[in-house]
C-alpha cells in the first residue's frame, strides 16, 4: 500500500463514523486494518529500527557497553542482547511469523536460563470455524475447588500472592446475588443449604476490557478467547476497572512459581511466565484448547459441572446445553455477551 493511499483510507475512515467503530481489532474488518498497519510497519522495518535507536540512544550505548564488557563471558552477552531485543519487540499481533518464531526462540533461551529447563512455547493460531464457549452447572458444583487448583498449576499462577483466576462462590439457597455470597469459604463442602457458582473471565463477545486498553495489549482472538500480550501491557489497570466480572488479575509483585512445578508446555498468549506489573487472566487454557484438549478446570472437575466446546459446531455439548437447558449469564444487561453460561439440571 502506498503512503498516499493509506493516508486516504485513514482520512476516509475518520470521516465515516460508522467505520470508526469498527477499528476494533477483534472484528474481521478491524483485523484487516490492523494487518494493513502491520504491513506498513513491516515495509518500514528499517525506519522503525532507526527510530527506536534514536529514541533510546543513550540506552543503546549503555547496552552496547554492557555487551562489550561481558563479551568474554559469551553467554552473558548473548543474554543481554536477547533481553534488549525482547524489550524492543512488537505487539504480538503486529509480528510476522518469522518475528514470532524469533521471539519464541529468545524467550525459550531466556527462560531456560532463568528456570533451569526450556519451556515449549507455542504460537498456535485460532482455527477457523471455532468459537469457544463454556457452561457451568450450578446444580452440580459442590465447591471442592479442584478446578482452582488445576488452574493454578496449569497456568503457572503466582503462588506468592495466591492468585487464582477461578473463584467459587458459596451462595445460600434462596439467594441469587453475589453480594451475599462467600467467595473465600474454607470448610467441608457442600455445606447444607448452599449452592456453588464459579466465575472466571467470561471471554465476552463485546469485551469492555479490550476497548479501554490504551496500547492494544489485550484483544479478542478469532476463536473468541480474550488474551493479553504480557510483554506489551504497560500495567495501567484500566481493563481491570472496566471488567464487570472481576476477570482480570494484576501482578502486583514479581510472580513466584517454584521452578520444579512450572508447567513448561506454554503458549505465547497463555500460561508463559508473567512479570511484575502486567495484567493477566484466564485464557480458556489456550495452550491446551488450541490443541484440542479440554481446559484444565474442565478436566479437573470431579462432578462434571463444567462443559466446554465449540459454539459453531451444532453437535457440540455446549450447543446442547444452550438448546436444551435453562441458561443464564451474569449481568446480561451490560451487553458484554459473555460466552460463559450458567445452567441447572
Amino acid at each position: 500500500m502506498t503512503k498516499s493511499s493509506s493516508i486516504k483510507t485513514w482520512v476516509r475512515r475518520l470521516l465515516n463514523p460508522e467505520a470508526l467503530r469498527y477499528l476494533a481489532a477483534d472484528d474481521p474488518e478491524g483485523d484487516r486494518s490492523f494487518a494493513e498497519g502491520a504491513a506498513q510497519v513491516m515495509d518500514k522495518q528499517l525506519d522503525r529500527r532507526q527510530a527506536l535507536k534514536a529514541i533510546a540512544g543513550a540506552g543503546a550505548a549503555g547496552a552496547a557497553l554492557v555487551q562489550a564488557a561481558c563479551a568474554p563471558l559469551g553467554g552473558r552477552s548473548e543474554e543481554a542482547q536477547h533481553r534488549w531485543e525482547e524489550f524492543f519487540k512488537k505487539n504480538y499481533r503486529l509480528m510476522t511469523e518469522t518475528e514470532r518464531a524469533e521471539t519464541v526462540t529468545r524467550l525459550t533461551k531466556l527462560a531456560a536460563d532463568d528456570r533451569g529447563g526450556a519451556p515449549h512455547i507455542q504460537t498456535t493460531p485460532a482455527q477457523p470455524g471455532v468459537l469457544f464457549g463454556y457452561a457451568f452447572n450450578i446444580s452440580k458444583c459442590k465447591g471442592y475447588q479442584d478446578c482452582v487448583k488445576a488452574c493454578i498449576h496449569e497456568n503457572n499462577l503466582d503462588r506468592g500472592e495466591n492468585m487464582q483466576y477461578i473463584r467459587i462462590f458459596e451462595i445460600e439457597n434462596g439467594q441469587q446475588s453475589l453480594a451475599s455470597a462467600n467467595g473465600s469459604y474454607y470448610h467441608e463442602v457442600p455445606a447444607d443449604g448452599h449452592y456453588y457458582l464459579g466465575t472466571q473471565c467470561f471471554h465476552c463477545e463485546n469485551p469492555p476490557c479490550v476497548d479501554v486498553c490504551p496500547v492494544g495489549a489485550t484483544w479478542k482472538e478469532e476463536d473468541g478467547i480474550v488474551v493479553v500480550d504480557y510483554d506489551w501491557c504497560i500495567g495501567c489497570r484500566y481493563c481491570q476497572a472496566a471488567c464487570p466480572y472481576f476477570g482480570r488479575r494484576f501482578n502486583w509483585s514479581a510472580p513466584q512459581v517454584p521452578p520444579e512445578s512450572v508447567n513448561r508446555e506454554q503458549h505465547y498468549l497463555g500460561n508463559r511466565p508473567r512479570k511484575k506489573g502486567v495484567m493477566e487472566k484466564c485464557t480458556f487454557c489456550i495452550q491446551r484448547t488450541r490443541q484440542g484438549k479440554l481446559p484444565a478446570c474442565v478436566e479437573a472437575c470431579p462432578t462434571g459441572a463444567r462443559v466446554f466446546g465449540n459454539l459453531l459446531d451444532p453437535n457440540s455439548e455446549i450447543r446442547y446445553v444452550l438448546a436444551n437447558k435453562k441458561v443464564f449469564r451474569l449481568k446480561e444487561e451490560l451487553g458484554t455477551e459473555p460466552k460463559f453460561w450458567y445452567f441447572t439440571d
Partner: peptide, 30 residues
C-alpha cells in the same frame, strides 16, 4: 501521577503511534 501508577513505566513507549500501538479512538485513556 499517571506514570507512577503504571506497572511498567519503561514500556510507555508502546503508546507512541507507529512505534507502538495507540488504541485511539477506542480507549478513553488515549
Amino acid at each position: 501521577f499517571v506514570t507512577v501508577d503504571l506497572g511498567g513505566p519503561h514500556r510507555v513507549w508502546h503508546m507512541i503511534p507507529k512505534l507502538g500501538y495507540f488504541n485511539w479512538p477506542r480507549s478513553m485513556l488515549t
